[in-house]
Amino acid sequence: MAQRTTEIITGLFMIAGLAAVLVLALQVSGLSPKSAGDTYTLYANFNDVGGIAPRGKVAMAGVKVGSVRSVTLDKETFQARVELAIDADVDNIPADSSAVIRTSGILGDQYIDISIGGDMESLSPGDSFYSTQSAMNLERLITNFASGK
């Protein structure tokens, strides 16, 4: 009988471990079963990406619609090429929308905001944004202002 009790308690222990992994997956890392893989890719070229890094947020009107997958340097144009993974259900981004790097709060994280255009056509997977606006660099702004340019 003692062995039976031990078995049950140990079983509960293992189940608690599994439950903890589930909590870490769903609640802490925000992994939701539906969104896995349901994305399509867009590209945006920036002169300066500032603090954008992989896994960064991509938002439209402040709502998260995707994430940054990678940031690479385009060796021909010397621009940063950012690969964006956009949720598949957001499939009607107007073709003349632009990607803007913004900062949440004055010292917060930088994220990519998609400013909506007015075109009837929408971007299809693999397309690049026509116009982009680079990160606002506070230091450069001050330098420019101080040197009077």
Partner: peptide, 19 residues
């Protein structure tokens, strides 16, 4: 609190590496 956490913690890179 949860939103910031969820957007920065990755299941594979953080949780699984921790495991």
């Amino acid at each position: 609190f949860w939103g910031n956490m969820q957007s920065s913690v990755s299941f594979v890179d953080d949780v699984l590496n921790g495991v």
